[in-house]
Design a protein around this nucleic acid. Structure first.
Lengths: 292, 292
DNA sequence: TCATTACGAAAGCTTAAAGCTATCAAGTCA
DNA sequence: TGACTTGATAGCTTTAAGCTTTCGTAATGA
């Protein structure tokens, strides 16, 4: 079973005929036929019902196709990755950053490391909630920076910073006296603006939310902030993002009953325990230990 | 880039030398050398530092190895899958079953379908929480049966049954008058016995739990039941599993304040929306629609 | 209905590359 | 130092992947 054979098989499935698959692959029809046939013989299976004019996928063929397609996608990804490794002088340091942490205190540490490794290729991917650690588990990132959300025994971490989360709202949306707690009831009719989880499998859609109540989802903190300023709802947000708005009065800090309205969340540098790190990743880890 | 070349590269990394890799692969040393070299030339990269006696992985080599290894693992899985397809007469119907649903009412429906397709190969995988849908997303299962936990717009579902969840405890653990609500405080000192999520990425570790309080994790409902009967804690559990124990008095149904102590959870047959189903999966779906 | 077009299988040939043997220089270790 | 191991190289053999051509058959269309 070679990837070329799989490619031929997949192309026939998607094109619907051997001939068009051949032209798509810049090959001739007999070689495509041979490739598929050798696959079929290898497994002693029949992927197509050839009794009709056009080949028709059998159940086995359909089942095999779904898996083969995924394998080939991964193969092309590896191909790209290899070329990317070659174009960069040294393999990049891939960091999965919780969007929450995109603040000076954290970026300063990355900059500090960069100063010591000026030739380094940095690749920062911002993710939300479970997406942060998912990048680590999928080995798409060497290190992650974020809160300990969804952590388990496979991870190792060190605290590197703290972030103050507060709950805010546009001041004219509610009749508020400063310093007075807001009841959940008062917020029920206003949308709670949440960040969509970028994790693919089991998103954390229920941390720090109120039961009942309308929920709106956005993709990043900029959009969250924009909706808040436009008085479309209320939300928890890192304080540093809305600092200006708090000062000029366009947003107001509130305290909601039975809700984690304000908290200081520690941020961690996280890595997989049993994964061999690149020398850059090791150096970054060490640097964070010392810098602290 | 062929899988054979990757296999050679990976084997050299793991064996630590070209020669031992060659014997492991039942090839000669020059052909392994050639395979690795052609990989390196393909990407214009250097995977090994050959200036020493033993080849030493470069940073690029290490980075590439991690990804290549995963690709090959998937390739061998596809290989196995193909042979499995061949050994079974027809591709199996793979169902991801929430362990919660392993009860007569649900199994009866599967049996009903089996009676109509006596030659069918069934492959049932019981999972917990996010693991149920993860199997669907990874295309390891054609259909899933479980509650709507972690559902999103990519899924399609039909209700097929209902399950009564209750909260129970060994009677002598608490001083209880029947019919009286238990305060959370009374349970704080007793472990809450939970099922571990089988999902790999972002487990649902916080549905129907009390804040604070000790938590124990088990892998299946049999173990949960065993711990309950041994008076090691309290838990939510499907009623049908502990029916006997409720009758003979070895377990007692309780009602906890501000906790979802008792509820009827609907169970659904779930599939991915945009995934081409096998004819068996389609038939099962139709059967469930009609049977209902 | 019959010519036209499109499709897939089979046979025979060409060629690229995957693999082997043999050999050599360099490194390791007693 | 000498026995041994390791990886690279050269030259040869063999495998299989690909091409061209041909043929029978199914769909299309005037």
């Amino acid at each position: 079973m070679t990837n070329e054979q799989l490619k031929a098989f997949i192309c026939v499935v998607e094109q619907g005929s051997f001939r068009s698959a051949a032209t798509a692959l810049h090959k001739t029809q007999p070689s495509v036929s041979a490739a598929v046939k050798s696959l079929e013989q290898h497994f002693n299976l029949c992927f197509f019902d050839r009794s009709h004019y056009r080949p028709q996928l059998t159940d086995e063929g359909r089942a095999f196709y779904a898996q083969a397609k995924k394998l080939l996608q991964q193969a092309t990804q590896l191909e790209m990755y290899g070329h990317q490794l070659a174009s960069a002088v040294t393999p990049p340091l891939a960091i999965s950053l919780s969007a929450m942490c995109a603040l000076p205190a954290v970026l300063e540490k990355i900059k500090h490391f960069w100063n010591q490794h000026p030739q380094m290729h940095l690749q920062v991917n911002t993710e939300h909630l479970s997406g942060v650690l998912e990048q680590l588990k999928l080995e798409k990132a060497d290190l992650a920076i974020g809160p300990l959300l969804g952590i388990d025994h496979n991870f190792e971490y060190i605290e590197i910073s703290q972030i103050k989360m507060i709950t805010v709202i546009a001041p004219h949306l509610l009749d508020i006296s400063p310093g007075i707690q807001i009841s959940q009831q008062q917020l029920r009719n206003l949308p709670h603006i949440l960040i969509s989880d970028t994790g693919s499998v089991a998103p954390f859609d229920h941390v720090n939310v109120l039961l009942g109540g309308q929920r709106w989802y956005v993709n990043d903190y900029q959009m969250k902030k924009a909706l808040l300023i436009s008085a479309m709802g209320w939300a928890r947000i890192p304080e540093h993002i809305v600092q200006h708005q708090l000062e000029d009065g366009s947003l107001l800090k509130i305290d909601v009953e039975n809700f984690n309205s304000q908290s200081t969340v520690p941020m961690y540098l996280i890595k997989l325990k049993n994964s061999p790190s690149s020398s850059l990743a090791k150096a970054f880890w060490q640097d964070m230990l010392n810098y602290k």
